[in-house]
Design a protein around this nucleic acid. Structure first.
Lengths: 346, 346
DNA sequence: CAGCCGGATTTTATCGTTCAACTCGGAGCG
DNA sequence: CGCTCCGAGTTGAACGATAAAATCCGGCTG
């Protein structure tokens, strides 16, 4: 509970500038600047003297002046989307946090802006770069036919994407999580646990993420030789709790019902969990269940889930935007978090 | 699907500066500056000429230079908290969005930063202001014995709070939502609907928001003359779905069970909703149910809920931070959103 | 006709920092 | 001895804008 440290900072009128430090240390402004930015360029003795003055006055270089002179804003921008769906909003939040943290580690600050749609988002990005406010922007939830990358490329605005756009294959500056691999890992986990009838609860066709996850189910089921009799175990519905409950009930009521369910979201899985209980079955014993996105609810519900490496995504994106070598493009593997709902029965 | 507009902007090397515009329009830099900032100071004819040049070159004033010279950063900062609890994370997200939007309306940008705890948050705030990066900071979820306001006051950092701190009564720069009034409104709504045994599902004691909401229940029940036999209808548990289900079941199993339930969160209410259904009762017909925070799930579940006026909170906070008259302190009333789960039976 | 007023515009100074060029003194070398 | 070269700092300009003061000029007044 340390009290505020001694504060002899307020000796002059305004905030402390580099000139004050220079005067106090008896050197030129440039030398102070060098001590801050290229310490090896200054003789040890001088360096110490300057450092003492800096500490004593509590000098902190003005970011605006520095940015203006070196014409690098030290900031990146990302749109904050209005909250709509439950799970997506959560992921967005986590992503922004990761971005802020990764940016800080790289000496970049994060600026947030609101926009009504993709077009005005792109326009704002262009304006932010043109006004020198930020040195690059981050696009969240990029889809194959996304209009944003083209606009930014055309305007020469540096950007990095969470998600892939058409033509991204040979481009850099994107990071994505391998949804298919995530679901495939779940299927393999369940197959290892002895399940051979594994159902899939997905989003309606046409949703990029949903399609990827569905694809992962098909691929892995095929690889495990389980696809033959399971075609009809792939069901779809919108991403809500009630939808999940309904889909699960439908599947479990059938003859040849699955003994395990993979859901494309924790929301669907939470609904399914309730459906399982309603049927008098015990999750994890009678029916294995795995969700996706590892939301806080998954932990509470003791629900296995697939965790996207969002902090790593943030780091990669910042690197793509600010790193030396612009050659960054990555498809990251998600991680399966096994909990009670799918633990192998001992 | 308009193509990118004609773009004669890239005639010089770097970005367009005010000097380029001045040259193109045949006036001095200052005149261009005046056209941008004080148009009434410039003769109509000249103004038009300058405007044409601005449009033609696509000039956008450099924010950094402007900020440096006028020593106002045009930015405010707010910490982005790591996601933990479900409902709070959602509110945080909504709040940040509101803040970004309100800031934009006031010509301020929003900067986000991550911090490990309240102390490092406060330290970061001080640093951000000292480096001229932002002109003020926003504190989210401020509680009575919060350590942050004191630090910032001491350092002379301009700030505004969402929430009240001790001593806030006679201070300005805070905005809060009247939790007690929100729950009271719910109780009144239910009483009007003919209910006289109204239960309360709350958070454990000691949680500021939870206590306020509990207080609202007591006050309103008393005012309606319903408190006498209802003391034991006030139950508490942690803010989870399962907890909500359990609490509701307990209440509804009792002799003299309530016919209506008010929950301190949508999460609790969602659990309660399920418990009601499990008992073979119909929500809204047999038992009225109201949640809090009006999360997306509330709409999906057709659950009445109390909506906090977060956009208004954002506007007020920005006004408190950037407005002319610093005299802003407001306790805003939340709004009851009535849905099927508590609609008066016709 | 001199003097002054006031609107319109230009000129000069400045914000706080970094870049580029320069000074200064001593060492190394032919 | 004269030359370059190098480390250690200093000086002046520049980044792109705005604030404050100076200038210009036609019209009004006495």
């Amino acid at each position: 509970m340390a009290k505020a440290p001694a504060r002899p900072a307020a000796r002059r009128s305004g905030p402390v500038t580099i000139a004050d430090v220079a005067a106090a240390a008896g050197v030129s402004k440039q030398t102070v600047s060098n001590v801050m930015n290229y310490p090896e360029k200054v003789r040890e003795q001088t360096r110490e003297r300057v450092r003492r003055a800096v500490a004593e006055l509590g000098f902190q270089p003005n970011r605006l002046a520095r940015a203006l002179r070196s014409s690098s804003a030290g900031m990146i921008a990302c749109r904050i989307e209005p909250v709509s769906s439950h799970s997506l909003a959560h992921l967005h939040d986590v992503f922004l946090h990761a971005l802020a943290e990764a940016g800080q580690a790289a000496g970049r600050h994060l600026m947030l802006f609101a926009a009504d749609d993709a077009e005005s988002e792109a326009a704002t990005c262009v304006r932010l770069v043109r006004t020198g406010s930020v040195e690059g922007v981050v696009l969240y939830n990029v889809v194959p036919d996304d209009p944003r990358p083209a606009v930014l490329l055309d305007a020469g605005v540096p950007f990095a994407c969470f998600g892939r756009f058409s033509g991204a294959a040979d481009a850099t500056g994107w990071v994505d999580v391998d949804n298919a691999a995530g679901v495939a890992a779940v299927v393999e986990h369940l197959a290892e646990g002895g399940h051979d009838r594994i159902g899939f609860l997905g989003f309606p066709d046409g949703h990029r993420v949903g399609d990827d996850r569905a694809h992962g189910w098909v691929t892995a089921m095929d690889r495990q030789g389980l696809l033959a009799g399971s075609h009809r175990l792939d069901v779809r519905g919108e991403d809500t709790w009630t939808s999940g409950a309904r889909l699960a009930r439908d599947l479990l009521d059938r003859p040849g019902a699955p003994t395990a369910l993979v859901a494309a979201s924790d929301t669907l899985a939470a609904g399914a969990l309730q459906a399982v209980r309603d049927l008098g079955l015990v999750p994890g014993r009678d029916v294995a269940l795995v969700g996706y996105d590892d939301t806080p609810s998954a932990e509470v519900l003791d629900l296995s889930s697939v965790r996207q490496p969002i902090p790593e995504v943030g780091r990669r994106i910042v690197e793509a935007l600010c790193g030396e070598d612009g050659a960054v493009a990555a498809l990251l593997p998600p991680e399966l978090v096994v909990r009670g709902s799918s633990r192998r029965r001992s």
